[in-house]
Design a protein around this nucleic acid. Sequence first.
DNA 1: CGGATTATTGAGTAATATCAATCAGCGTGG
DNA 2: CCACGCTGATTGATATTACTCAATAATCCG
Lengths: 261, 261
Amino acid sequence: MMSEARKFGLRRFLRRLLDRSTLSAEEQHAILSLPGQVRSVRSRQDLVMPGERVEHAVLVVDGLCGRFDQMRDGSQQINAIYIAGDMCDIHSVASPRAGWGITTIASGTILLVPHEDINRLAVRYNNIALALWRDTTLDASILAKWVANAGRKDARSRLAHLFCEVGVRMERAGLDKRTHFRLDVTQARLSDVLGLTPVHVNRTLQSLRAEQVLSMDKHVVDIADWDALACIAEFDPAYLLLDGPLFRWKAGEDTEVALAS
Amino acid sequence: MMSEARKFGLRRFLRRLLDRSTLSAEEQHAILSLPGQVRSVRSRQDLVMPGERVEHAVLVVDGLCGRFDQMRDGSQQINAIYIAGDMCDIHSVASPRAGWGITTIASGTILLVPHEDINRLAVRYNNIALALWRDTTLDASILAKWVANAGRKDARSRLAHLFCEVGVRMERAGLDKRTHFRLDVTQARLSDVLGLTPVHVNRTLQSLRAEQVLSMDKHVVDIADWDALACIAEFDPAYLLLDGPLFRWKAGEDTEVALAS
DNA sequence: CGGATTATTGAGTAATATCAATCAGCGTGG
DNA sequence: CCACGCTGATTGATATTACTCAATAATCCG
């Protein structure tokens, strides 16, 4: 049932927020009570076009979404991958018009949550505002890492890094194991993520397979040697901000700021 | 005098916030009253090391700073450039430990603003919280564009895009003209920004100079043909979110959300 | 089964990196 | 004032990575 999907998606979203922020029972309840429109989506469906002004945020209930930028020659660059529980364009709540677009990478289910309702929560509960800000921070942190990877690493290392990142995020979200997960992408799509050619992605995958580091068959990634992969990738998960929930803001006029352990 | 530098920096910071957010007189005054420690910095001075936990945010009063990531082989990738008025690591207020580092690119003056005080303002004035979140959004938007540039554009186009971006940002900040500005970077530093080799940056600059599009002499960029440069860069400033101040949150328990025109 | 993607392979090419000099500016100590 | 040593800019020659084009094989899906 549709309403079930909504609850399910919001629970995943809440879980994700709780990874980095502490929310009271009331705040948690408020998140879970967010309204939203459930929608089934196929692969390669553009949800937000670049430059469009939006009035709702896209929460991935199930499947995969990506944020993309388009070049004049038609080529795409995907600059963020979102898995179940991620809210793709949380930013849009603060800045409703952005330069990017949102597309589905794999079929699945999404929940469209009106900005209006998210704003209402952020106003009433400033720790929700903080949690959302923190989520944007994570997004920026991942982007910063992607810039570094694109700028300074070769194809092997970039590919390896992507698998490490997605593995860890999947595992953290309770979706799969970091060494074995379903990643419903075609090699062409992978090339849009990594800024490579489909041909080159194919060859790079083969080289990793030949070295028994990882295999990708039928869109299932199987990492045989995590340490080797992390080494190739120079993967350091610090940028995923997984140290556990951080401090809260004290409510009201209190001028003291609570800092967690 | 040092205190003058503090005021000066905060005014620039406020001005920057007002480009995208509306703040009341009281809120503006609160920003300008932020405390902070002024510090003169030389070029190539690391202010925050990767992975370090910080307790203050860095505001660029004058000069240039950059956020960087470091590879195992020692090479650096600069994934963000900050000009006067920018607060480099606003994110750190929400997430005090990040994976990146902050370094100076050119000599100048910075202001270290304690997180504690920023948090205090964000708690008391939720529109300041919104403005800061929005600022993080802008940062993410720029990063997303850089990912796209690094992934899908060649050296010429990337270099051109950087100059367009910095020009527009400088002009917007009231520091210079977009077609003529001082950018105190060496070619080697530029290469760290663009993910290229110093040698290649040099040759690419020469090619742009040969075509009378732009020249860079003594660290002063002179753009002879802005349109040509923007065309080479495929520059569309939408991602800089310059449409003017956006909506405010209504204060207090009000459940209605104010949306600007 | 047949038409569509998607994956794979090969050969040749273009972009960028690498290595190694040389050159130019510039501050400093003699 | 000038020689020295430094950093940054420039150049040339070569190596390497990744792209392009084009074809074929495998898989998916109705």
